[in-house]
């Protein structure tokens, strides 16, 4: 029964148990509109988590992605307004490209100077935020100015239903975007040599370079990919909330890292999976969502996220220690 000991199965089990418990406390949890809104809340955190997952498997950590996301989002929206571009394909490509280039800066310092990723990303994140507010602007772009194409795209639902009181609700199609990206990251990690190299590098950087992996390629690949995912998620977020706020995403790094750790990735590198991360994201979003439903003050959410990050890290660290012994 080896599959029973897989982290994903354990996490799924805990998730199911938590869902049952929450359902008992609050039967409204199982209603379709709540579940749909829950899945909607997964999209942005989830896409960002995919990038953080890759970096954590390599043994690094990224705290710069919220800044990259906000920069990509704000610059792209500004550009769309300035140029009058109404499509979405180029907009998302641009946002992803901005994130990718910023990610390359991270990769450069991590690779070239063998710097600790935490320090590098703390620095780049702070710089990017500062530049954005200082050079580009601090004003929010509200619904009345937001590009319509973007909002229309983010409005697409897969299913929509009508409640008894006549209001409609649905499951956003952005969930499909998230699932598609998750599938891509999964395939990359599992079925490409670069992906296996990420695991190898996270397991033992020295051995990975001795074995003949291209370390530069691996590092640039993950930091650029993570940056691109963040940029993409940033723009999608603006479309989904009809608002481009250059001060958005503050403190989001902790939520995302908590979700990735909750999903079984090791902070020491070498371990982690897309499925686990998606479960971790779902669990984190669900817990935060339940706190809101139960009308618990939002400040307490920070406490909960902190507790989750500590406990999940402790459990995975304990697991890894046991494996080593």
């Amino acid at each position: 029964m080896a599959w029973l000991r897989r982290s994903e199965v354990v996490i799924a089990g805990i998730l199911l148990l938590a869902m049952i418990l929450i359902g008992l406390v609050n039967p409204a949890f199982w209603q379709a509109d709540n579940l749909f809104s829950l899945m909607r809340s997964n999209v942005i955190i989830g896409i960002m988590a995919l990038g953080v997952l890759m970096i954590m498997i390599s043994g690094g950590i990224d705290v710069s992605f919220p800044a990259f996301a906000v920069a990509a989002m704000y610059l792209t929206v500004k550009f769309m307004l300035w140029s009058g571009y109404e499509g979405i394909a180029f907009a998302f490509a641009m946002a992803a490209m901005i994130g990718l280039l910023l990610g390359a800066i991270n990769a450069f310092f991590v690779y070239k100077f063998r710097m600790i990723p935490l320090i590098v990303t703390l620095g780049t994140g702070s710089m990017v935020r500062g530049f954005l507010l200082g050079v580009v602007g601090t004003s929010m772009i509200n619904i009345n100015k937001m590009p319509d194409g973007l909002i229309d795209f983010a409005k697409i639902d897969i299913v929509s239903m009508t409640k008894a009181d006549g209001t409609t609700y649905g499951l956003t199609a952005m969930v499909l975007v998230y699932l598609g990206l998750a599938l891509i990251v999964h395939m990359v990690l599992r079925y490409t040599m670069v992906g296996r190299g990420v695991y190898a590098y996270g397991g033992d950087p020295e051995a990975a370079s001795r074995a003949g992996f291209d370390i530069r390629l691996i590092l640039f690949f993950i930091y650029c990919f993570a940056g691109a995912l963040a940029g993409f998620a940033g723009l999608l977020h603006a479309g989904m909330i009809w608002l481009a706020n250059p001060r958005d995403f503050v403190g989001l790094e902790l939520d995302v890292i908590a979700a990735v750790v909750l999903g079984g990735a090791s902070i020491f590198g070498g371990r982690g999976s897309v499925l686990g991360t998606m479960l971790g994201v779902f669990m984190l979003v669900m817990v935060k969502n339940s706190l809101i439903i139960m009308k618990i003050d939002t400040t307490w959410q920070r406490v909960v996220v902190g507790v989750i990050i500590i406990i999940a890290t402790a459990v995975t660290a304990w697991r890894d220690q046991k494996r080593k012994a």
Binding site: Y199, A200, G203, E206
Partner: peptide, 21 residues
Amino acid sequence: DFSLFGNLTVAENLAMNVQLR
């Protein structure tokens, strides 16, 4: 130190060099 990857399976460790080559 054997230059092995403790986080990967025996199979992957054995085959990695060949695949890379």
